[in-house]
Design a protein around this nucleic acid. Structure first.
Length: 606
RNA sequence: GGACGCGUAGCUCAACUGGCAGAGCAUUCGACUCUUAAUCGACUGGUUGUAGGUUCGAUUCCUACCGCGUCCA
């Protein structure tokens, strides 16, 4: 292939020589003076309510020079049509020997799909009604040495699309015949729908065209633009804080470790900018935001990529109630800027980003209490470990009959304060293992009991129970925009306590489409309390939680200079973009998602 | 880390219950001055992800590994 195309390049050079061009000028020129981009030209004369007619073109000829990549060629002897693509749009061009002459036609015959050319000419309307550029001159700009994917299907192989995003981007622009056949707004092609009921038939996968990849990333840029506009207009300043850090703090996650040679020290890639941004608020930057990458050393799935983009913003004198209002406003604003509507379509479900539900975590647990667990508990069950244990025990005995056998002789006291190797703990662990291959929901529930039996803090158990109940796959509780507020202190080492309930903090997360999109809280600004929280984290770390935080003495010192009451929030940009583009996987909104390297053979010329 | 699924020509896909590995597009050659998934004729293209095993015979069955996807941890 390479050799054949190199031959063509030489022939192209020969044609160029006749026009006085050097080999380089004829094959890889370094300039083309265009008058319009293809999207501009289309917007002016074609993509409008009343496209220009042939009569209008004849009365007022439109001359243009455009450049693009050849996506289709229909040559017919001494004339032919082709489609040039630029900026995700295509323009048909018509090359006729009578007009362009012998050499230009010879050049046209040497062109391959994927080549870049520039053309000059004027617009006309064909008999079949397509506005077309009648070519006067052709300038060869660059050769595609590799064959393009199937012109009808485009590039469909998901792995290839991610590995060779450059091909994905110019093939899947919504312009391929298969994509246009399926309507103007192709949805992400995939089959399984978490929210679909069991009675619905599985859609036929092969019929769905690949998504409009270009559009997804154009929209992603629009999301970022809208967010910057929102914050810039409200007096926030955009900052950039270190990604290479000594202590990776601000979140519960494992960092990547790297090394700086001249200092000869190990550094981490940041897992969150949080602690630096609050230092800036101490420094008097009352409103700051940062949009950039975080790195977390974790696995990959449809909502996780080890590097992901996060927006974090901090606002002095605000608390989490202010941030809840702000959150609704921001999401609505971005949706309107990007899509012109607050309605989003995700996984076949219509989501209204303008309609929000607010529930405290405790309310949510009670409201969404699965009927399989028996009667919902009363709201005071979160007040003490004993009461919580009683509720869980009752639920377990209702939901899982085996539990009745195991626990009937066990006094509540042992539930509350179990022996590490006692019969109860052993039995529960055993049960957890036997469920491993089975029902995930059941397993999640048992997991709460395991945590409880192993002596995890009550708050942590409550948070885990919330996740189980909230993410119940049979209920889709967190699909529509939902704010869950008031978190247990035990899972929130950087948040400020509620004044009247010291075991709970002023924190919320918001969910859309079934997953967490953002996290916010009133910032803990008492340095002594913060030091204690770090020390608690170190204890958790000693107990084996390698996601627990490290002590950050400098951060505590910064708080020592006085952090005003401050509200701070983080929003996952990739996930927000997924919702706004209907992308089912985070990999569909990240240009080059992390993939395992392929140590495969590299194809070369022959 | 586990379960399930997938991997065949550059791309999109076939190949029945184990019996000579095929088609369309792209490529190459030829015809064609309003086509649009252009059309017509001819040709070319393969270590069936990798390595083993069973078998007279493996794309197909078995094992391990590699990569991807989905769900879960």
């Amino acid at each position: 292939m390479y050799r054949l195309r190199q031959d063509k390049l030489r022939q192209i050079a020969e044609i160029g020589e006749r026009a006085g061009l050097t080999y380089a000028e004829a094959t890889y020129p370094n300039h083309f003076a265009f008058t319009h981009t293809i999207p501009e030209l289309r917007a002016l004369y074609i993509d409008r309510p009343q496209p220009f007619t042939e009569a209008e073109f004849e009365a007022n000829p439109v001359h243009a020079a455009v450049a693009g990549r050849l996506m289709q060629i229909r040559i017919q002897g001494k004339a032919g049509f082709a489609n040039l693509q630029q900026g995700g749009k295509r323009l048909q061009i018509y090359i006729k020997k009578d007009v362009v002459g012998e050499d230009a036609l010879a050049l046209a015959k040497l062109l391959d799909l994927g080549d870049h050319i520039g053309v000059t000419g004027h617009l006309f309307v064909t008999r079949s009604g397509e506005t077309t550029l009648q070519v006067a001159t052709i300038t060869f700009l660059a050769k595609a040495m590799l064959a393009l994917p199937d012109k009808y299907h485009g590039l469909e192989d998901v792995e290839l699309r991610y590995r060779q995003r450059y091909v994905d981007l110019f093939m899947n622009t919504g312009q391929s015949a298969k994509q246009t056949e399926h309507g103007p707004a192709p949805v992400v092609a995939n089959s399984t729908e978490p929210f679909a009921t069991a009675t619905e038939a599985t859609p036929v996968v092969s019929e769905a065209p690949p998504p409009n990849v270009r559009e997804v990333f154009v929209k992603r840029a629009a999301v970022l633009r809208a967010l910057r506009k929102y914050f810039d207009e409200r007096g926030y300043i955009e900052v950039e804080t270190p990604m290479l850090v000594g202590i990776a703090g601000g979140a519960a996650a494992r960092p990547f470790i790297t090394h700086h040679n001249t200092f000869d020290i190990d550094l981490s890639l940041r897992i969150a900018p949080e602690l630096y941004l609050k230092r800036l608020v101490v420094g008097g930057l009352d409103r700051v935001y940062e949009i950039n990458r975080n790195f977390r050393n974790e696995g990959v799935d449809t909502s996780h990529n080890p590097e992901f983009t996060m927006l974090e913003f901090y606002q002095a004198y605000a608390n989490y109630h202010d941030l809840m209002d702000l959150t609704e406003e921001i999401v609505k604003f971005v949706a309107m800027e990007v899509n012109g509507t607050t309605i989003a379509n995700f996984n076949g479900v219509e989501i209204d980003l303008g309609k929000w539900t607010k529930l405290s975590m405790r309310e949510a647990i009670i409201k969404w209490w699965p009927s399989e667990f028996g009667d919902a508990p009363s709201s005071n069950c979160f007040q003490s470990r004993d009461l919580f244990v009683q509720v869980l025990r009752k639920a377990a005995e209702t939901y899982l009959p085996v539990f009745r056998e195991w626990s009937k002789d066990v006094p509540t006291a042992e539930w509350s304060n179990p022996q590490k190797d006692g019969t109860l703990v052993t039995a529960i662990r055993q049960m957890h293992r036997t469920l491993a291959a089975g029902d995930a929901f059941k397993k999640g529930f048992v997991n709460v009991i395991v945590e409880l039996a192993e002596g995890a803090p009550l708050g942590k158990c409550i948070a885990t129970l919330f996740e189980v109940v909230g993410e119940n796959p049979f209920a889709s509780n967190l699909t529509q925009p939902t704010i869950i507020y008031d978190f247990p202190l035990a899972v929130s080492p950087l948040s400020k306590q509620k004044p009247d309930e010291p075991d709970w903090v002023e924190r919320f997360e918001f969910y859309i489409g079934g997953f967490e999109v953002g996290n916010a809280f009133s910032e803990l600004n008492d340095p002594l309390e913060q030091r204690e929280r770090f020390l608690d984290q170190l204890k958790e770390r000693d107990r084996g939680d390698d996601e627990a935080m490290h002590m950050d003495e400098d951060y505590v010192r910064a708080l020592g200079y006085g952090l005003p009451p401050t509200g701070g929030e983080g929003i996952g940009i990739d996930r927000l973009t997924m919702i706004l583009t209907g992308s089912k996987s985070i990999r569909d909104v990240i240009l080059f998602p992390l993939l395992r390297p392929q140590a495969k053979q590299t194809e070369t010329a022959s």
